[in-house]
């Protein structure tokens, strides 16, 4: 049985990991694939680490939460710690280069540092930090294409882009830059 790709996104509240998860799942669904997305939503949902579980495949998805991620992305120190129960020897573990290396998981398939926070601040805008992460996920997994991501972003933010076309441009560049950041990292 073909297994779905399992992606875990973890970040601080406000870093926008749920939006990224939703865009990936929705874009995959729109292109006719099976997809399932579930956020964590315990009592700590107000102001703690935000986790998103995404699965994309070609057959109906099994249980909504998985034991081991194929790709885990952690965007803060606390997010690294919260992600650790879901990583294993097969996991590619992505973290922002600004994070200290003390808590990083051992024994994973790959550990990849991505300077997303820095690049978004210097080259683009901090508000599209999560869109760069989206690009990184796309670059690493290919679960959706850059074009599909752009269409999904258009569905979510199209009404805002109407008023501010520069914002569309900024988002598109952020996806592309995210893809570039992980090029050659696998």
């Amino acid at each position: 049985m073909a297994r779905p790709v399992k992606i875990l996104l973890a970040g601080e509240g406000g870093q926008g990991v749920q939006a990224v998860a939703e865009i990936i799942a929705e874009a995959a669904y729109e292109k006719g694939r099976e997809a399932l997305y579930i956020p964590n939503f315990g009592i700590e949902q107000r102001g703690g680490v935000s986790l998103a579980f995404v699965q994309v495949g070609d057959e109906p998805i099994g249980p909504p939460r998985f034991e081991t991620a194929d790709l885990a992305i952690a965007l803060s120190d606390r997010a690294v710690v919260r992600s650790r129960p879901y990583v294993g020897p097969e996991t590619t573990f992505i973290y922002d280069s600004s994070i200290g290396t003390n808590h990083l998981p051992q024994g994973v398939a790959r550990l990849v540092a991505v300077p997303a926070i820095e690049v978004s601040k210097k080259e683009l805008h901090p508000r599209v930090f999560n869109v760069m992460i989206l690009g990184a996920v796309i670059g690493l997994t290919g679960v959706i294409t850059v074009e599909e991501a752009k269409e999904a972003i258009e569905r979510r933010l199209g009404h805002r882009f109407e008023k501010d076309p520069a914002l569309r441009e900024l988002n598109h560049r952020a996806v592309e830059r995210g893809v570039e950041l992980v090029k050659g990292k696998l």
Partner: peptide, 10 residues
């Protein structure tokens, strides 16, 4: 259950 309530799928 809560998972079914909160998750998204087709």
């Amino acid at each position: 259950d809560g998972y079914q309530g909160k998750m998204r799928e087709p």
